[in-house]
Amino acid sequence: MTLAHDVVGDGPTVTLLHSTAGDRRMWDPQLPALVDAGWRVLRCDFRGYGETPVPDRPHNDAQDVADLLDRLGVERTALVAASGGGQVAVEFAARWPARVTALALLATALAGHHPGAELRAFGDREDELLAAGDVAGATELNVETWLGPHADEATRDKVRRMQRHAFEVQLAAEEEFEPIRVVTDPATITAPTLLVAGAHDLADFREIAADLSTRIPGARHVELDWAGHLPSLERPDAVTPLLTDFLHPTKP
């Protein structure tokens, strides 16, 4: 299966990996600035999100990204990733360090992280709502949980639409397949790395960023005092320059 994707711009490639509260549309605010900065921008939808169908067999998201890059003839890329997409990016950068020129992680998740009480409560409540058939309620729970105080109503509606679509696609699947898990060590990552956390996010993601900053050699750690879990959507005016400034010196 080839992941649904789009490519715009000319220059070295930067690949954008979305949060599991959205799909590749979450990067709409960053797209023009990255193209103007001289990047060829690749965005893709993971299986079961956006325009990519649900898995039809066990799969690995990082391998899916590698396969897509191979099909497009991309040997090396910068990675910008959010939340669940960050988990994929960390795995990718650890498995294939020579392919990654830079790594920017926004409120990243991490394989093997044991969720704290607040994150467990969120997951339990989401499961309850979905089991009861209340997709709208589960969608609103995600909107309220993942967006910080600076998100305007247009942004909230965008996340609402992306999350609702993901739920509908995934709930309609005839069979659910467990992902193929690959254990990696973040210490093997060689790319310049930026870790961004939000002060209004759940504690888990702030802790993951702080932890990875000690495990990825030379990583830079920034906590935004205004941000929730999706800062690139909440305040593109602040996050987009942060990303372009970080990426510029890493251009091949």
Rank of each mutant, 00 (worst) to 15 (best):
L3R: 10
H5G: 01
V8K: 08
G11D: 06
V14D: 00
H18M: 07
G22S: 15
R24I: 00
P32V: 01
A33E: 12
V35L: 03
D36L: 08
A37T: 08
W39M: 01
W39A: 01
R43V: 14
C44K: 00
R47K: 13
V54T: 15
P55R: 06
R57A: 15
N60H: 10
Q63M: 07
V65T: 05
V65D: 04
A66H: 13
D70T: 14
D70I: 07
L72G: 05
G73Q: 09
V74Q: 07
T77C: 10
A78M: 13
G84M: 05
G86I: 07
V88M: 07
E91A: 07
E91L: 03
F92E: 02
A98F: 01
R99C: 03
A102T: 09
A102N: 09
A104T: 14
L105D: 02
A109K: 07
G112K: 12
F122M: 03
G123H: 13
G123P: 14
D124N: 09
L129P: 13
A131Y: 00
A132V: 12
G133S: 08
V135H: 07
G137N: 07
T139G: 09
T145I: 02
A151E: 06
D157L: 12
K158D: 07
V159K: 03
R164G: 00
H165A: 14
A166C: 12
A166D: 06
A166I: 09
F167Q: 14
F167Y: 15
E176H: 15
R181S: 09
R181E: 14
V182K: 03
V182N: 02
D185H: 02
D185S: 05
T190Q: 14
T190D: 10
T190C: 03
T193S: 11
L194D: 07
V196R: 10
A197C: 10
H200T: 07
A203C: 01
D204C: 04
R206Y: 00
E207A: 15
E207T: 15
I208A: 01
A209H: 08
I216K: 08
A219E: 04
V222C: 05
L224C: 05
W226N: 09
A227P: 15
A227L: 11
L230S: 06
L230K: 09
L233C: 02
R235N: 09
D237C: 01
T240K: 06
P252N: 05
